[in-house]
């Protein structure tokens, strides 16, 4: 590929991920996604699994949970709890950064 070619990607959320695509993006089997969705660990479970689509937020959360489960042999519920806290930290960091942009 020539470096001058400009790649035009798709913005996730305009084009959300299917269950299989989310699994591949996280390096897990689709069963992992199914089990976590059914357990309500990263969606409210209100949509049927087959129709479920996943956003940027889901992708970040799923990758964090995979990392925590693998790295610490954590049960999914604990990984979800850590992911909840990291998401809250993201929000708080954004607010702190607004008050002090050097952080």
């Amino acid at each position: 590929m020539q470096p001058t070619d400009v790649l035009i990607g798709r913005l996730l959320d305009d084009e959300s991920l299917t269950l299989d695509e989310l699994a591949r993006a996280c390096g897990v089997k689709p069963d992992w996604v199914v089990e976590h969705v059914q357990a309500g660990l990263f969606s409210d479970g209100s949509v049927a699994i087959s129709a479920q689509r996943f956003s940027s937020v889901d992708l970040r959360r799923a990758r964090r949970m995979v990392h925590i489960e693998r790295g610490y042999d954590a049960v999914p519920e604990l990984a979800a709890l850590v992911a909840d806290m990291l998401e809250e930290m993201d929000e708080l960091r954004m607010k702190v950064r607004a008050l002090d942009p050097k952080k």
Binding site: P3, L7, G9, L11, R60, M94
Partner: peptide
């Protein structure tokens, strides 16, 4: 590997751009 990527207008922090086949 160097890639030139188009950043779509209106993108928000934390969103992902998906580049198929890259």
């Amino acid at each position: 590997r160097t890639l030139d990527v188009r950043i779509p207008k209106g993108i928000r922090e934390g969103q992902h751009i998906r580049l198929r086949g890259q």
